[in-house]
């Protein structure tokens, strides 16, 4: 059995900011979402952001996650961490910050926090219109089967 912290369990049982954000076409407000994982695989995290266009502040963040306990807790933690940050500040949030917020994750589950970071990057890049270079699923063994995250990818991100 995984050794989850109380914080992980709390956010798993009572996640904050679950769901999606509707785009109500409010002036000066942008709503985007970023996604990691593939529908073909059947696993994903979708991160929704509400952004104040003037100062690039994240006004709200919501998530939809198909994944394990730590994936759900990580997603929820991420939304808590980034609310109120500017996009530039948010881009500095790493999977380590997510794990720290959760009081730690089992080593084998560290990668569950990685996709939080990736979804954030995807959402912000999408908003800014920057193409995301798709990392090849290369050498490494498939570690997170739900999200198709390979070991080498995790190493890249964790380092």
């Amino acid at each position: 059995m995984w050794d989850y912290t109380d914080k992980v369990m709390e956010l798993f049982y009572n996640p904050k900011n679950q769901g999606l954000l509707e785009d109500n076409q409010e002036p000066g407000i942008a709503v985007v979402f970023g996604e990691v994982g593939s529908i073909a695989c059947g696993d994903a995290l979708r991160l929704h952001l509400k952004i104040d266009v003037d100062n690039e502040k994240i006004l709200d963040a919501r998530f939809q996650t198909f994944g394990c306990t730590s994936a759900i807790a990580s997603s929820s933690a991420l939304t808590e961490l980034i609310k109120g940050l500017t996009l530039d500040q948010a881009l500095k949030v790493t999977n380590k910050d997510i794990a720290e917020y959760l009081g730690g994750l089992p080593e084998a589950k560290m990668h569950c926090s990685v996709m939080g970071q990736e979804a954030l990057e995807a959402a912000i890049f999408k908003y800014r219109g920057i193409p995301i270079d798709v990392h090849e699923e290369d050498e490494g063994a498939l570690i997170c089967s739900c999200f198709g995250i390979s070991e080498s990818k995790i190493r890249r991100v964790i380092q």
């Binding site: 996640p15 679950q18 769901g19 996604e35 529908i39 059947g42 994903a44 995290l45 979708r46 939809q64 996650t65 198909f66 759900i72």
Partner: peptide
């Protein structure tokens, strides 16, 4: 399922 992005997709 309410948490899942595939719900109602």
């Amino acid at each position: 399922r309410a948490l899942s992005p595939f719900n109602n997709d």
